[in-house]
């Protein structure tokens, strides 16, 4: 029973992480119909941004909650800027070109970030950047305390924070998309960018905003993962990115609530299958789910079937 509860807790926390990353995929796909391959690497940059900020603030010596807040906000700013730049410099010039061109650029940007971060340190940088291929260890942002125990399962303030922050951001996103003017514009662009433009919606600005929003969520996910699993390295974004994409497809790509549900289902199924049956094939589970979804319900749980027109 306690083993089951432990897997449940782990699965939910993993699932919320996947959901946060999947939201970025699904929103960008909604407005641009492009799979943003670099999204997993924005997540990686989020973790490293937090890592450098934490060292700058001296978190190692005196961990505290205000510093944690600074690390979170700082990393979100870094990722937001990165997301904005990627869209502005790499995707926007290609928006009206064949789709394949944008896809290849996205793959290129993704590998540029992954391998750029694996380079040896540049001598002119004041701090240890790029970090190189060896894994780093994320410092403890604030002291870990056990809040309460259910049977043998202990819930620490870390777990509570991770879940709380993830839910907070998802509710916030829900609010932005359905209750603000920006959200209405975003939905309009995702419905039809040309008509939205004719209706006076600044399409370019909305697309930029969507990238920033998605990247911020990715950086939050990265920090939440890094505080509980502190090993970070330049290709840490590959697998979570892939799995979050599976979550987005599972929920119906382009569908915001779908990404959240998909993330949770994926996290739970991964944790339970890996926990009870095939622990060494953990990474293969998401892939198996992807294949099954593509075979039997390619539009996802909540997606609508759309036919492509000329």
């Amino acid at each position: 029973m306690s083993e089951f509860l432990q897997h449940l807790v782990n699965g939910i926390s993993l699932g919320t992480i996947y959901a946060l990353i999947a939201l970025g995929y699904t929103m960008v796909y909604g407005v641009l119909k492009l799979i943003n391959f670099a999204h997993g690497d924005v997540y990686m940059v989020g973790a490293f941004g937090g890592f450098y900020l934490a060292h700058l603030l001296g978190v190692n010596d005196s961990p505290s909650l205000p510093k944690t807040l600074v690390v979170f906000v700082g990393s979100m700013l870094i990722c937001g800027t990165l997301g904005f730049l990627i869209e502005r410099l790499a995707y926007r010039p290609l928006r009206y070109r064949p789709r394949l061109t944008a896809l290849i650029t996205a793959i290129g940007i993704s590998f540029l970030l992954e391998f750029g971060f694996q380079l040896p340190r540049w001598s002119f940088m004041p701090f240890d950047f790029p970090p190189g291929p060896t894994p780093r260890f994320f410092p403890e942002l604030f002291p870990r305390t056990i809040w309460f125990n259910i049977g043998e399962v202990s819930i620490s303030n870390y777990d509570a924070l991770a879940l709380g922050v993830a839910i907070l951001f998802m509710v916030g996103l829900e609010f932005i998309i359905y209750r603000t003017k920006f959200g209405v514009a975003m939905r309009a662009v995702s419905f039809d960018p040309n008509i939205a433009g004719l209706m006076g919606i600044p399409v370019d600005r909305i697309i930029s905003g969507t990238f920033i929003l998605g990247s911020v969520l990715a950086s939050v996910a990265a920090l939440l993962v890094s505080i509980s699993r502190p090993r970070i390295d330049p290709i840490m974004g590959l697998m979570p990115g892939l799995k979050a994409f599976v979550a987005a497809v599972f929920g119906g790509i382009g569908n915001v609530p779908g990404a959240m549900v998909g993330g949770l289902i994926l996290g739970l199924s991964e944790e339970f299958v890996a926990g009870y049956m095939l622990s060494s094939f953990r990474d293969a589970i998401a892939f198996a789910i992807l294949i099954l979804v593509l075979l039997f319900r390619p539009e996802g749980l909540f997606g609508r079937i759309t036919t492509e027109k000329v």
């Binding site: 799979i35 896809l103 599976v246 060494s280 990474d283 293969a284 992807l290 294949i291 593509l294 390619p298």
Partner: peptide, 27 residues
């Protein structure tokens, strides 16, 4: 499964396949 859909899916499925076949062989 992936070629029934539009091109983007093939890219991500093949990337996944590449990683998964490695996981399988290693185990």
């Amino acid at each position: 499964p992936s070629l029934r859909l539009r091109g983007d899916y093939l890219a991500i499925v093949t990337l996944g396949f590449n990683e998964i076949i490695r996981v399988f062989i290693e185990n």
